[in-house]
């Protein structure tokens, strides 16, 4: 086994343990919060017998450990229970809402990398010039306002006053796309409808950009800081004294060593977008998991809460896993050390 695969396998194992821990924690917390889920679901007019019947159905009268055992055995069969809010299996709800959120986050993450990294590189390469100053200003602006503020500002500017982009939603109503994966980018391609694909892409730009802005700023600042440090290293002087062009030094020889410390933060930022997405989704009426999550928490919809949190944790862990693998690939020191974890 190559070291990279070994590290990967170990990380997957650790992630599974973490996920199990998260499930216990959220399972317990959801049940400790005051309020009777059966009563909330049935409403104030329901009789005591009706509430008791639902409590029994939900196994709420059994000890919490027994409940958790049931939950685990059902989870093993891919069943997360029934949502009291939508009256559908939680798995079906998540399958419907998660892709919208993931699509938003992936586009935002891509923007963060594709815009943030080059800005950081340019800033470090032309340190002290007007280019550097301009980029630092933009980056600071990006990190200094939360994403929902940007969501509102961008919506006002580019959807309302200057109607370049649609104001809300994932796709225009005129397109009827059959849901296969739930990812509109994939579904429109499966349907072979390029116009719909374009329309979906057009819808995602503003909310994704609002979500990405602080990440872009963070990435640019971090990359700049790390590269400025790398520029003082002897190996950069060595590259210079061998006449390697500035551009190549910036994009390759100074960038790659600087990327290692940045990457972990970028990964965390990426995962943090899951949380920020709640508000951006609300502003842009984006039918994602975040909106669903807020509704089920307010209604103390136990199975749905546990299911949503588990999926978000899993996404978080997968992101971290990807970052770890990337760091391993970039950093030969980790790859070749036996004790790496």
């Amino acid at each position: 086994m190559t070291p990279t695969i070994l590290i990967f396998v170990r990380r997957v194992g650790i992630s599974c343990i973490v996920l199990l821990g998260v499930s216990m924690l959220i399972f317990a917390i959801a049940r400790v919060i005051p309020g009777d889920p059966a009563r909330i679901a049935l409403g104030p007019s329901a009789t005591a017998e009706q509430v008791a019947k639902l409590r029994a159905e939900l196994r709420l009268d059994e000890p919490i450990a027994v409940q958790y055992g049931h939950f685990l055995s059902e989870l093993a069969q891919g069943d997360l229970g029934i949502s009291l809010y939508t009256n559908r299996p939680v798995v079906v709800d998540i399958a419907q809402f998660l892709p919208a959120t993931l699509e938003l986050i992936f586009v935002a993450g891509a923007m963060m990398i594709v815009i943030g990294l080059p800005l950081g590189i340019a800033s470090a390469r032309w340190r002290g010039t007007w280019i550097d100053n301009a980029i630092r200003m933009i980056a600071l602006l990006g990190v200094s306002a939360p994403s929902f503020v940007w969501a509102v500002i961008l919506m006002l500017l580019f959807a309302y006053f200057l109607p370049l982009f649609p104001i809300a939603g994932r796709i225009s109503d005129t397109f009827a796309i059959e849901q296969v994966t739930g990812f509109l980018f994939l579904d429109t391609l499966i349907a072979g409808n390029l116009a719909a694909f374009g329309n979906a892409a057009w819808h995602v730009i503003l909310p994704a950009f609002a979500l990405a802005l602080s990440g872009i700023g963070q990435t640019a600042r971090l990359t700049r800081a790390n590269m400025v440090e790398t520029y003082d290293k002897p190996y950069v002087e060595m590259a210079r004294s061998y006449g390697v062009p500035d551009r190549r030094i910036a994009n390759r020889y100074a960038f790659k060593p600087s990327l290692i410390p940045s990457l972990t933060i970028i990964g965390l930022d990426f995962a943090a977008m899951l949380g920020n997405a709640f508000l951006v989704e609300a502003v842009f009426a984006w039918p994602g998991l975040s909106r669903y999550g807020v509704s089920v928490i307010l209604r103390k919809d136990l199975d749905a809460i546990v299911g949503t949190v588990l999926i978000i944790s899993a996404t978080f862990l997968i992101m971290n896993l990807i970052v770890d693998v990337l760091v391993t690939i970039i950093n030969p020191r980790i790859r070749y050390s036996r004790t790496a974890s």
Partner: peptide
């Protein structure tokens, strides 16, 4: 013209072969 540096290990880029 080329140059040889003081500290060979830190003059070579750590992340390239």
């Amino acid at each position: 013209m080329t140059m040889v540096f003081q500290d060979p290990t830190s003059s070579l880029n750590p992340v390239y072969r």
